[in-house]
């Protein structure tokens, strides 16, 4: 089996890179960058506005992967798996829920986002994907989770395509890097390539 990184995307500092090429540079001055990017990508999915930051970020990253890789659109519904990793997870929603607790009635809509893996749920719902997923908490530099889990899913035939992602959305720290791993690309799936694609800030 010839595993490759076939498409990759990074969003940070109000910049978007798809397969290493910068896109949508005109959005750099937008105050609400993710909302502006959502509009720019002409996604008609009003649930976006209800999501917390990390879910919005993850959803947009996958939308970008889809624009560059139509193979993602033509998968059976349980062939796409998601392997995510974060340092802070859903910390932003945690803080917001904690603020709600002081009110008479805490907001249920805030609480539902206080689990790190909800971003994966939102992407699954949006794309009607029923495949396997997991969310690791680990240091930014570490790629062992993403690499070994993605490999094991593909080699054991549990998935045809993996979206491996590192994601942070807390205060100023907004960062997403994601890679589509399958057999279709030209960049071999190695430690070094994964580092190049996912660890560049």
């Amino acid at each position: 089996m010839n595993l490759t990184i076939s498409t990759y995307c990074t969003i940070y500092n109000k910049k978007v890179f798809l397969n290493g090429e910068q896109l949508h540079e005109d959005l750099a001055g937008e105050e609400d960058f993710l909302k502006a990017l959502y509009k720019k990508l002409e996604i008609d999915y009003s649930k976006f506005y209800k999501m917390d930051g990390i879910s919005r970020l993850g959803l947009l990253g996958v939308e970008l992967l889809k624009t560059a890789n139509h193979g993602l659109l033509n998968c059976e519904d349980d062939e796409v798996a998601m392997v995510f990793q974060s340092e802070n997870g859903c910390l932003e929603s945690d803080v917001n829920h904690q603020l709600e607790v002081n009110k008479k009635s805490p907001s249920p809509a805030v609480f539902v986002y206080t689990l790190s893996n909800i971003v994966i749920g939102e992407i699954s719902i949006r794309n009607k994907w029923y495949g396997e997923s997991i969310f690791f908490i680990d240091n930014f530099d570490s790629n062992k989770n993403l690499l070994s889990y993605s490999k094991s899913l593909l080699l054991s035939g549990k998935a045809k395509k993996i979206i491996a992602a590192k994601i942070e959305h807390f205060d100023e720290n907004v960062f997403l890097s994601c890679a589509l791993i399958d057999e279709e690309g030209s960049m071999p799936l190695t430690d070094e390539n994964l580092k190049k694609v996912l660890n560049t800030k």
């Binding site: 009003s46 009635s105 907001s107 249920p108 809509a109």
Partner: peptide, 17 residues
């Protein structure tokens, strides 16, 4: 409007607050 179960709970919060 396509609201869901969480929206219903938010409406309960709205009426309360």
């Amino acid at each position: 409007l396509g609201l869901d179960s969480i929206d219903a709970l938010e409406l309960i919060v709205l009426l309360d607050q």
